[in-house]
Nucleic acid binder design. Structure first.
Lengths: 220, 220
DNA sequence: AAGCACTGTAGACACTGTCTACAAAGCTTG
DNA sequence: CAAGCTTTGTAGACAGTGTCTACAGTGCTT
């Protein structure tokens, strides 16, 4: 079906597929070429090095994540609800597309020798900036709404600036995404309370706790 | 100096050294053997496969972390202070021994085919359990102290169980360790406020914010 | 129509992890 | 002591990797 598309895109497609089925470790350059039906030297015309191809695959992952975020955002009305949907998307992506998530943060593969990369493309590390800005904006909106409600009945504790809270929250979700994807958190918390969902409930409860911690408990 | 020690330990030592100087990516089996002064087949007598040697190196990292934690714990008196020291150690380790930290969480390298490993050794994933228990215990102690102080003047909001808070806090520190080690957080937060420390102040401020979020603001 | 950049092929090279056969040492045991 | 055995390291082979180079088509420009 992707016959008419350029080989460059096809290589990335095949790479994504390979990363998802096999692990992120063994995405060989020759294997990708093989599955794309070209000789092992062909990718070199589009990516100067193996790392460059992997970077392109990783970038695809960030694009996917961005798309997921936008889809998640429109499903919720309040900023708090949007943050919750975003968090679920983040953690869910890490678990369901584990290989991609792993690859996306393999800085040793992606950026180290990437000076030979196309200079117009933003460096991969900066792919996280829009993600962070999204967090910051939503945290800010949560703050202003919360302030409005809190001024009515409680003391207005200032708390750290929105950017700091956003950074802390991002770190939290990122760490949780990883630990959850590997099963470390499930291992630590023990099995779900007997007859629960296969873990998704536990995950959502953890996400709620994280949001409560960073944004204050939700006002009911 | 390590002349009389067994080759097995020497291989791990050399591996750790290599991981720290070069990245965690290119710790070749032959390279380790070369630097240890033995032939490329020698490691096979002690580790059935390359992954097994890497697992041993990773386990060394978890041991180091445990030692750091114990050293950090004795330096502080209150449980909150201990948690703060622990957090600093965690994040600091990730940044100063980046290669080791990366390797420690490369589950694809470490555990995948590890059924051929020595069965008496605990699986590497479970190396995080003592770490988590330590967190849970400290969070519990923070809770009971906090409860005592809070009952005096404020409402006693229950909050999630200590294990959940510990899981959330661990996720937060883990994510922060990674993002900070790569420089992603520095990139997101921008440069330090002009003439500040080269970032350590920013890091400590972020750690404090994280602890405040999960344990409630410190009572002064 | 000639020239040219572009794209893919095929082979070479050094290197990797794993496997096998083999040599040297240490140890037990008759 | 000497024969046998396990242990530990060596050396070579093998398939596989990423990268490099020379070479063949293809399409486009002038």
């Amino acid at each position: 079906m992707t016959d008419e598309s350029s080989l460059r895109e096809r290589l990335i497609d095949v790479g994504v597929d390979l990363v998802l089925t096999e692990g992120s470790a063994s995405v060989g350059l020759r294997e990708i070429a093989r599955r794309a039906g070209v000789s092992h030297g062909a990718p070199r015309r589009h990516f100067p090095t193996h790392h460059a191809l992997l970077s392109a695959i990783g970038r695809r992952g960030f694009d996917d994540l961005e798309t997921l975020f936008e889809a998640a955002a429109v499903g919720a009305t309040t900023p708090r609800g949007q943050l919750e949907a975003l968090a679920r998307a983040y953690v869910g992506y890490a678990r369901e597309r584990r290989g991609m998530f792993e690859l996306m943060w393999r800085h040793d593969l992606l950026d180290s020798t990437a000076q030979a990369q196309a200079p117009d493309q933003p460096r991969l590390r900066e792919s996280t900036l829009p993600l962070f800005r999204r967090f910051t904006a939503l945290v800010g909106r949560c703050r202003s709404e919360g302030d409005a409600a809190r001024n009515a009945d409680g003391p207005n504790e200032a708390g750290p600036p929105a950017a700091v809270t956003a950074a802390a929250l991002w770190s939290n979700l990122h760490g949780m995404a990883q630990l959850w994807a590997w099963g470390s958190l499930q291992l630590a918390l023990g099995p779900p309370p007997l007859g629960d969902d296969p873990g998704d409930g536990q995950r959502d409860r953890l996400i709620a706790a994280v949001l409560d911690a960073h944004l204050g408990p939700v006002l009911s």
